[in-house]
Amino acid sequence: MSKKKYLLLFVPVIMISVAGFIYSSYTRTGVNIKKANAEKVTAPTLYERFSNNTSRAKSDYLHKVLEVSGTVMRTNKNQQEQTVVLLKTMTEGAAVNCTLEEKLEDLTEGKPVSIKGICSGMGEGDLDLGIPADVYLVRCYVIKN
């Protein structure tokens, strides 16, 4: 086969590969939380780490997939009808605030639960008003309840 014929064969193959790569990069939807490896931690420990040493906690947990175990303090629905589970911490009024991807109706107050999700860090409270910040977990799934 002549050089010209090789080129005619390979150029379209390369172009299709590049287009496929760009398309898959553009349309990918992010990490699969259910399948991802997760670091295990309890809700009170996670909250305490962020409260006591935020920069250390950021390097240990921020944007990582965690499996957080704890006790349900309260559940509610957000504006998009997603279930939000608040896990108890040692600080009154503060929670590990988990937004679930799946609808779950049987999570009652006081129930032990393990939730897997991405840690997005500590929000902002208002110390003057006595509102402590929450530590947020997003894209969550309940592992055990």
């Binding site: 957000n78 997603q82 605030n97 860090g121 929000g123 902002e124 008003l129």
Partner: peptide, 21 residues
């Protein structure tokens, strides 16, 4: 969906805070 917001219903003071991430 992780926005913290407070309203003081007496004075009208209001605040919002979000983690950009």
């Amino acid at each position: 969906n992780q926005v913290m917001s407070v309203i003081n219903t007496q004075t009208g003071e209001v605040q919002f805070s979000v983690l950009v991430k």
